[in-house]
Amino acid sequence: MIFIPLPFVVALLLLILFATVLRRDEEVALNLPFLALILVSALQSVLSGLRWGYGVQGVGLAAPVIAAVVPPLAYAGVFTLVKTSRRSLAARIGLHAVPAILILLLATFWRDAIDVALVLVFVGYAVAILLLMRPGADALRLAPFEGAVPAYRAIIFAAAALCLSAAIDIFVFLDFISAHSERALALISVGNLAALVILGIAAAAASRSRVPPETAEGAPRSDTSEDKETIAMVDALMEAKKLYRDANLNLDRLARKAGIPARQISTAINRAMDKNVSQYVNDYRIGEACHLLSATEKSVTEVMFEVGFQTKSNFNREFRRVTGMTPVAWRQRRG
């Protein structure tokens, strides 16, 4: 009977996930680092299957080098959704190649230090990603508002997966030192595969972004009256142009339409309204959805698309957040 190791199955699932992301019919640019992350995760899973399933020890040198590529790709994918300038990321490509080069050198001259180095790389990039996400969903300035919250959660899961992989490496390292290495194989097989699956799914969930032209930003203002003035200007624009109907609307595009720095809009809404910009825009969408559900015979799905949502899960979640009930229950009560 042909033995197919579990890592090969995981690699196949990741490749299917990659193909699914590529086939999405959306008018938005691909997030190349996240797509590369899915492919690298699949390759890492294949190497794991060769080494632990078929005993191919020749992949032992390549596996840690490939592993060192994963955290920089995850960080680059998040950075693409957060920053308006690609040049700042391009300028750091050499810096982000350092972990893989370091692991390659250690594999050649000091193999015993590889585990410690990988732990530091994974934890360091996880912390860097969490620092980028400090403003919450508003940090994803280039992600459409409709998917900002799911993308934010996916990125947090990706950072958690990096920490999980680091924790597994620590445990395996201690297990080998204590001469009880019989547990290491099972832990490597299950734990690392779980981390790869989480990374792949998280990358797919946040794998789309639109990168607009660069916009200049000033320092955020702190005066409450200025916050109200900023919100009033954005309110007027939202009501006159109905920008919230644009499913791909993001913070940078809203800032360009309003002629106000994105950071200023985010700060004003966070401080004066105690909500993020995604919730602010979705409040407008839900407000019009309530009107359409009450005043027209359009289906819930038609209303969902008309007001700017693209998925029922997001529409139902935001509708319940604003009204406390589902769209169907709202229509029945109003009817």
Rank of each mutant, 00 (worst) to 15 (best):
H291I: 08
A137H: 01
R153Y: 11
K312C: 07
R331F: 07
D227C: 12
P261F: 06
M1H: 12
L105Y: 12
D227M: 13
T323Q: 11
L251T: 01
F145A: 10
G136M: 07
M304K: 09
V121P: 02
V28A: 09
Y152W: 13
F315H: 02
N31S: 05
V190K: 11
T84W: 07
R208C: 03
T311K: 11
L249S: 01
N276P: 00
L174P: 07
A158F: 08
F309M: 03
A258E: 05
T323Y: 10
F145C: 07
L162H: 07
F309H: 06
A100K: 12
F145Y: 15
V123F: 11
S45A: 15
I2R: 08
A204N: 01
N276H: 10
N248K: 11
Q332D: 13
V65R: 04
I177A: 14
L131Y: 11
S278I: 02
S41V: 03
G94D: 09
S45F: 07
R221F: 14
V234E: 00
S207L: 02
K257Q: 12
N316Y: 14
R331I: 06
E297K: 12
Q57T: 12
I2H: 10
L50I: 05
M1A: 09
D252A: 10
V281I: 15
A74P: 01
N316T: 13
L73D: 00
L32Y: 09
A97W: 07
E306C: 03
L162D: 02
P261S: 09
R320G: 02
L293C: 04
A100D: 12
P144E: 07
R208D: 02
E288P: 07
A219H: 07
N314S: 15
G324T: 10
F319A: 02
L132P: 01
D252W: 06
S299N: 09
C163Q: 10
A186D: 15
